[in-house]
């Protein structure tokens, strides 16, 4: 982590809202991407990202080390997403399945995007987590194990199973 970022974290911890806004600017990309990947819906991802930053601002004093900010904010984002998925599950049990976002299938590009997001949505939340953390956030296996508090061997088998499931869904879409 660079020193500049460290400085912003320290300032934000002292309650400086401008420093915190700078942190939002820097981390909104990874937080939003992760939320979008987990939830599959832009509006919901925006709500989850907003909730993440507000929660972070209110509990900045609970941050153990200024250097741990990046993974700390992602953990808050992860919790926000998992909470939403659980709530959604309950709601869907009451009201039958809500149709997911349907994209424009006219051009070739939109087609594979739709196929990919549909394949992602077919995965379990646990599988989506490892795929997003590794392939989008760039975490190594050990960092994922630490982040999710699971054994390294589980990261390896879970990511492999997730990718195989994605591939199967993808092939189904192509056929």
């Amino acid at each position: 982590m660079d020193e500049e970022l460290h400085g912003y974290v320290m300032e934000a911890r002292r309650g400086n809202p401008d420093a915190f806004t700078e942190l939002v600017r820097r981390f909104q990309g990874p937080v939003f991407r992760y939320a979008y990947g987990m939830l599959g819906d832009r509006q919901e991802a925006e709500d989850a990202a907003q909730e993440t930053f507000i929660k972070a601002y209110r509990s900045l004093s609970g941050l153990g080390s200024d250097y741990a900010f990046a993974s700390w904010i992602m953990k808050i984002a992860n919790h926000a997403c998992v909470d939403r998925l659980n709530r959604r599950k309950k709601e869907r049990q009451a009201v039958r399945d809500v149709p997911s976002e349907t994209a424009d299938k006219t051009d070739r590009n939109a087609e594979w995007r739709t196929a990919l997001t549909e394949a992602m949505e077919s995965l379990s939340a646990e599988h989506r987590q490892v795929v997003l953390l590794h392939d989008v956030q760039g975490y190594r296996y050990e960092e994922i194990a630490d982040f999710l508090r699971i054994p390294l061997g589980t990261v390896k088998s879970r990511l492999n199973a997730a990718r195989l499931a994605l591939r199967n869904e993808w092939k189904k879409g192509e056929a």
Partner: peptide
């Protein structure tokens, strides 16, 4: 595909 698709997702400008 996953890396390039999700990596290109940008947050909405009004989030900040």
């Amino acid at each position: 595909l996953t890396a390039s698709f999700y990596g290109a997702i940008e947050p909405p400008p009004e989030l900040e």
